[in-house]
Design a protein around this nucleic acid. Sequence first.
DNA 1: AGTCATAGTTAGATAATCTAATTATTATTG
DNA 2: CAATAATAATTAGATTATCTAACTATGACT
Lengths: 184, 184
Amino acid sequence: MERKTAKECTADQQLPALGIRPYLELMDKTAADHADRKSIRMGLVMLWLSDNILDVMDVDLAPFGITESKLDMLLLLMLHEGRELITPSGIADRLGIRRASVTALLDWLEKRGWVSREQSAKDRRMIHVNITPEGRALVDQVLPTFWSTCASLLGDLDAEERGVFEKILGKLHRSIETRIGVGR
Amino acid sequence: MERKTAKECTADQQLPALGIRPYLELMDKTAADHADRKSIRMGLVMLWLSDNILDVMDVDLAPFGITESKLDMLLLLMLHEGRELITPSGIADRLGIRRASVTALLDWLEKRGWVSREQSAKDRRMIHVNITPEGRALVDQVLPTFWSTCASLLGDLDAEERGVFEKILGKLHRSIETRIGVGR
DNA sequence: AGTCATAGTTAGATAATCTAATTATTATTG
DNA sequence: CAATAATAATTAGATTATCTAACTATGACT
């Protein structure tokens, strides 16, 4: 990021990708037998959107030097401030990742002073994780962008569309939730 | 995957993740000033959905020993069969990734015999990439699942909802397309 | 006291990316 | 036409986010 060696980098310029049209075309060729092409077509768009929505969020968070996974962890810790103490295992369960992955994320966040670990007095196997004041400051700085990026995902849907879309989102949410089995 | 050492693996069972509710709650606390909480709330759901839609596809493709990125590459090659010859640079442009990443993906696919590389006669810097008959066979085997997973993403939306959602998807698609600048 | 279970970590792997540098090869141009 | 530029692919090395298995304490149960 800081080095800029002599030869000025043999630009591999980041061209915009092709989009979904070709896949729709392939669909028309190969899914001929399939009953509802319309659903497939819409699913393809959803898949494409999913990829790009995550990208957009990544790009918007990048200037803060944080990624979504890490922000998620900080947000979770922030939510738990003042409630029950939270441990790596608890974090793993709530984020749906393994304890080993939590260890890695915490190491990274701790190195930057955004979280702290403290051994439990009662059960010395356990660790209590806390967000630090610096961590909180970072979150405060990031959140406005985070929310506005969220809001921007709706694009230019008008009021009426938003209303319908809200309901649809609810349905999609529940359907995927059952599909992957979210608890609580 | 095959080893099952004595101690039967200290289960870190994969618990279902917490879902978005806590984030909605956090939003209510911290985005108080923000004009349209509703949009933010919907954006959060979209973000959550995006993550999980990609997961669902991953899970459904896993049994075929292939991931979405790799399938994408095979589909692209299949689409180009019989048209212009395609090179790693071309693939990189169309998939929106770097040439170095294409090299890595091609290595992986070539090792399994699903694509082949052939040096161009005209310009010996260039390589022509082709999907092999085995690669095509794999794609043929995977596609039905791929399409049905796409279709399944719509969940149980009824006919009317599908109609409206189709329009909304179109708008969202275009809005993100301009945001990230898709070419062609 | 001995066995078992739990919490966290470590070790080592994989996937999908990236940037920078390197190697060929072709194109341009004084 | 010889030197310099540009282009195509690759390599080298890194990062992020995961995973599984194994290991180390520590606590609990019999």
